[in-house]
Write a protein that binds this DNA or RNA. Structure first.
Ligand code: SF4
Ligand code: SF4
Lengths: 133, 133
DNA sequence: TATATTACGGATAATACGAGTCTATGATAT
DNA sequence: ATATCATAGACTCGTATTATCCGTAATATA
């Protein structure tokens, strides 16, 4: 029960992009070396973010990644869901129906966490970021 | 990023014990067949709960498991921590100190979930449990 | 047009971890 | 003495994560 490293990479990348001049394209090399991860692996993660509509990419020389227009609304939860999926943290075989109290406790606990992550917008955090990532 | 099945087994077992007559010892066989899990595996999990001081065990014929005196105070979070450990869900290499905003967001999100799980006492839930687990 | 640069995709490998089994040992009631 | 039951360690198995390799497509630039 841990957040994956991929999620970690995705969050750092998104915040770095948010702290950069908006229009500028940034290649995966620059993003990767800053996080000490291989370019090929980070590339796969960024492709997920592209497909989730959070960033856009440009191939070819001087290509790279850039935030999309809707950036202001993107939350931590959006990034996490894009990488880890949206399945519930708690699942049981033998489902005894939605009135089960165990499920209710576990699911609502997860929702408390998600609510907090949904309220944290990347744009807000980027403003407050002190130095480097 | 999912709760382990072991946590699931532990929660169900604890709630079943809570719904049983307090003094009575219940063997692992009975607990295991109810959850469709092997006795040897469930046994390992229960041993963790014993070491965490939540239940007590008696060896030998007619032995088994039973809740401890402090049962009223035990929460969902206690059980989960006993099985999954207490390490943070979010960890980063390159730790840039506690003032990092990313860490703060992730850790406080986890704390929101934990707060909710800490408030859910097994004894409370056992009273409200409708039928079987 | 040719070339360098860059993102994308599939296949594959390495690693870690969860889930589960097997077996031996020790404790306890009858 | 024997059957029952919990405990502990070694071990296997499957799957998800992490990561690498390589070929292809797109694009800027000379
Ligand atoms: S009791 Fe609740 S949590 Fe357990 S298997 Fe049934 S529905 Fe799932
Ligand atoms: S920026 Fe924050 S989350 Fe990222 S590595 Fe540094 S301390 Fe950890």
């Amino acid at each position: 029960m841990k957040f994956s490293k991929a999620t970690n990479y995705a969050l750092h990348t998104m915040l770095f992009l948010a702290a950069s001049p908006q229009h500028k394209l940034i290649g995966v090399q620059q993003l990767a070396e800053r996080q000490q991860v291989s370019t090929t692996y980070l590339s796969k993660i960024l492709t997920k973010l592209v497909k989730a509509g959070m960033i856009e990419s440009t191939s070819g020389a001087n290509g790279g990644y850039r935030l999309k227009r809707n950036f202001e609304e993107i939350s931590f939860l959006d990034v996490i869901h894009a990488i880890e999926g949206t399945a519930s943290l708690f699942e049981c075989e033998m489902n005894h129906g939605p009135e089960c109290l165990i499920q209710q406790v576990m699911v609502s606990a997860e929702m408390k966490m998600e609510e907090h992550l949904r309220n944290q917008k990347l744009s807000e955090l980027a403003k407050q970021m002190p130095v480097v990532l």
